[in-house]
Every structure is written in structure tokens, then in C-alpha cells.
Amino acid sequence: MDLVIINLIDGLFYGLLLFMLSSGLTLIFSMMGVLNFAHASFYMLGAYFAYQISMYLGFWMGLLVAPLLVGVVGALVERYGLRRVHQYGHVPELIFTFGLALLIEEVVKFFWGNNLMAYQEPEILKFALFSIGNNAVPAYKVFMIFTSVAIFIGLLYILTRTRIGMIIQAALSYPRTVEALGHNVPLIFMGVFGVGTALAGVAGVLAGPVLGTFPGMAFVLGSIVFVTIVIGGLGSLWGALVASLLLGWLTTFAASSSFSFATILESFGMQRPESLSDSYLRDLWTLTLPQIGPILPYILMVLILVFRPHGLFGKRDV
């Protein structure tokens, strides 16, 4: 039971981290139709910028400044890169963002090298807030959970209660019509791209000390973020939240379970063979759920695409 509670907390942490990435990506995708392959690269930039700033000014300045920097980089990419490529259609846009992801990774390696960065959480949060059983819950993770919840509430407020939020919502479906009403849609695109990438930057700043700051961090998280927005439904903030939490808990519980596929085989009345190397089922006999945990989100995505192509909350086809 203790383990279940602790897994719920860990899954919440991981899910909310995913949400900070997927919320920006899903907004950008539904508004501009651009599947931004470089989204997770902005997450990585956030971590590296924050690390660099924290060397001189401490963690908190990093948390404040790094996402702003990432957002500015994102806005510039939209203004001078994507917007020019846009007129040639979606495939060049995809190739552009894909190339950008590779470029950012190489730039990071160029300036910071291949090694892990010793990016640390602030001293003030380096203690175990409470323990369940023997398992400690670090204060930093709790801080992260509250920060991301605050960001979600802020986003929701802006999107549903403010005029700019209404314009964004309208432009998600009919950008041309919104522009014909006199709203500067190109500027809004740039802003959404900037805010979306800044959110990814926040995620990087917060996750860097926990999950590690290294040149492969974008790649490790990148694909799962796409899975999240497909499951949640493209363009839906709620969908992104629900799917992120779902995946957070799914992977956490899968990884911490000790379920073995041998149990299923035995329930069919099969005997574990004496010599596994001769058995054509040897892989199944030795397979455990934690081993395949990380592919469960992809299986879920395929199922969603088959049975509910709009995703859980989406209104349009993938």
C-alpha cells in the first residue's frame, strides 16, 4: 500500500513534467499545423541555460531567466525560420524542425560537451520532505509538482478568461478568419510558439537536476511527448493534461511492478521448461513488466489511434 501511494506521487511528478512539454506542443501543433520535432530540444536548452545561469547567479535566477531565453529563441525560430518555410508546405516544415532538433543537439555538445552537467537542485530544497515507509519524497519534487500545477492553472486562465486567450482558441481552428477580423495572427503565432517553447524550457529547468542534464535528454523525452499529445487529442489542453498523467502513472506503476509474464504462461497450465534455451517461448518466460514498461505508452497510442483517432479529448483527426 505504501508503495502504491509513493508511486502515485512519483507518477504525478512525471506526468506533470510531461504535461509542461505536451501543453506547448499541442498548442503549437493545432494552431500552426506544425509538428515541432524540436520541441524537446527547447526542453534541453532550458536545462543547459539554467545550469549555466545557476553557476553564476544561483538556481532561482536560472528558473526565472532560462525559460525567458528559451522563449525568445523559440519566437525567433518561428519568426525567421518557420514562417519562411511555412509557404512551402508541411513537409518542409517537418524537415526544418527535425533539422533544428539535430542542430540544437550539436550546438549543445559544442558548447557544453558530451558529459553530464552537474546541474543541482537548490540547497534549500535538498531534503526529504516526508517519507512513506522507507521511501523518501524529496522536497524538490513536491516543489516541482506545485509549480507545474500553478502553470497549468495560469494557462487555463489565460486561454479561457482573457481576450488574448479567446483569440488563440479561435485561431486554433480558423486562423484566417481571425486575421480577417483585424487580429495580428502572425504575432499571435510567434507568441504562442515562444510561450510553448518557454514552457518546455521551464520543464527542462526543473527536470534537469532530477533526470540529468546531458545531450541525449531531448531525444529520451522527445518521442514520448508526441505520444502524449496524440493520446490526449491534438489541440486539447485538458487532453494533454489527462494523457500526461495517464502516461506518468502507467510507466511508474509498470516499472515498479514485479509482474512476470511467466505468471500468464503458468495460468495456462504451462510448465516452466527445464532448459530455457531450448524453449521457443524463452523470451516470454523471462520477460517482466518493468522490462517492457517504456513501450506501454506506444502500445496505448496505437490502441487509441485504432479505436479513437481523435484522441481522448481531441476534435480533429491526427
Binding site: 508511486n7 511528478f13 513534467l17 533526470l211 523525452l221 509498470a254 515498479s256 518493468p290
Partner: peptide, 9 residues
């Protein structure tokens, strides 16, 4: 593995 926490638990 993105987050090793569940293994650690």
C-alpha cells in the same frame, strides 16, 4: 527510462 524513481522505490 526517463525517470528511475519507480525502480528506486
Amino acid at each position: 527510462v526517463k525517470d528511475f524513481t519507480p525502480y528506486a522505490r
